[in-house]
């Protein structure tokens, strides 16, 4: 390949991005773009798969048959999201097998929120409301991301996530109409998840080294702080309707800015969880590794059987 040829390809790529058009699997793309996408989509896929565990923790104890059906269907959706996303990475030449190995060996990350434990049934509602709510804020802009298969997967995922958020909010609303014990459960759960939910948008813009390049490539569309603000603005009126208090003494409406002011999460805690020292990091990976290892003989059997059938 001549230098001139590659320059031309780069020009075409840049023009496509500038027009806000999609890059498709067979289009030429810079190696850095491909790597960034694989890293980001894989991290998202891993988050869906690891995210099955904290909620899955309550399937066997769901307090009504209706809630059990809703929760099992929800966790099943997360497995489905993982599938679409691993399929999107396959269009970039990275297989599910190889990415799963990277997850289990700790070479690739997943969302730190799933390293917090679920300690009551109210957490199922809070995760739907706040965690899925934050995920939606992060993910809706990705429906317009420049890489076609990722953007299209995100459209479907966002529709399901908004449904999940709705069910979480509805569970909390229902519990708030119940007994004093149930209301206390909801408040306690919101107290635990509010700050970790704010951390889901990543470090403040000043400390986010990859943001500028990702925005230039059209992979990312909004900065961490912009999305965090959007999430706070969206959540405060919902908390009022629920009748819960958000655990931030600095939270108040700022007329001048037209947004809520709010306090900063404990970024030291965030760094610690990202480094692997959160409450459940070890447990989550050990669970995934055990399921993956225990299933190896089944996957091998299916491969051997399929090879013989051909």
């Amino acid at each position: 390949m001549t230098v001139t040829h590659e320059d031309e390809l780069q020009e075409q790529f840049d023009a496509t991005i500038a027009r806000h058009d999609r890059i498709e699997p067979r289009d030429w793309m810079p190696e850095g773009y491909r790597k960034t996408l694989v890293r980001q989509i894989a991290q998202h896929a891993h988050s869906e798969i690891i995210g099955m565990q904290p909620e899955g923790n309550w399937i066997t104890r769901a307090p009504s048959l209706r809630r059990k059906a809703i929760l099992l269907a929800k966790v099943q959706d997360e497995a489905g999201h993982g599938l679409y996303l691993y399929s999107a990475t396959e269009t970039l030449g990275a297989s599910r097998r190889e990415l799963t190995d990277m997850l289990i060996s700790g070479k690739q990350k997943y969302s730190s929120i799933f390293n917090y434990p679920t300690l009551s049934y109210a957490d199922v509602g809070t995760i739907g409301w706040l965690v899925d709510g934050a995920a939606i804020c992060n993910q809706v802009p990705l429906c317009r991301t420049s890489y076609g298969p990722y953007g299209r997967a995100m459209i479907r995922i966002c529709k399901e996530e908004s449904f999940h958020q709705r069910q979480g909010f509805e569970l909390l609303m229902t519990m708030m109409r119940g007994t004093d014990e149930q209301r206390a459960m909801v408040q306690e759960s919101v107290d635990r998840f509010w700050w970790p939910a704010l951390m889901m948008f990543g470090p403040p813009d000043a400390d986010s080294p990859n943001t500028a390049q990702s925005m230039a490539w059209g992979i990312k569309r909004d900065t961490n702080d912009e999305l965090r603000q959007k999430f706070v603005d969206m959540s405060v009126p919902q908390a009022e309707v629920l009748g819960v208090t958000l655990p931030d003494p600095e939270l108040r409406w700022n007329d001048e800015r037209g947004h809520y002011d709010f306090g900063q999460p404990d970024w030291e805690e965030f760094a610690q969880v990202v480094r692997g020292a959160g409450p459940c990091n070890t447990q989550r990976i050990a669970h995934r590794k055990r399921a993956h290892d225990d299933g190896a003989w089944v996957r091998e059997a299916a491969t051997a059987f399929a090879a013989r059938e051909i």
């Binding site: 798969i49 099955m52 565990q53 899955g56 399937i59 066997t60 059990k68 099992l72 269907a73 966790v75 099943q76 497995a79 489905g80 993982g82 599938l83 691993y86 599910r96 669970h287 055990r290 399921a291 225990d294 299933g295 190896a296 089944v298 996957r299």
Partner: peptide, 18 residues
């Protein structure tokens, strides 16, 4: 339902949940 998040592969996780 106890298989949820424990199945040999994602497809089986989804099928058993179904």
């Amino acid at each position: 339902a106890e298989w949820c998040s424990n199945a040999p592969d994602l497809e089986e996780d989804i099928a058993l949940a179904n």
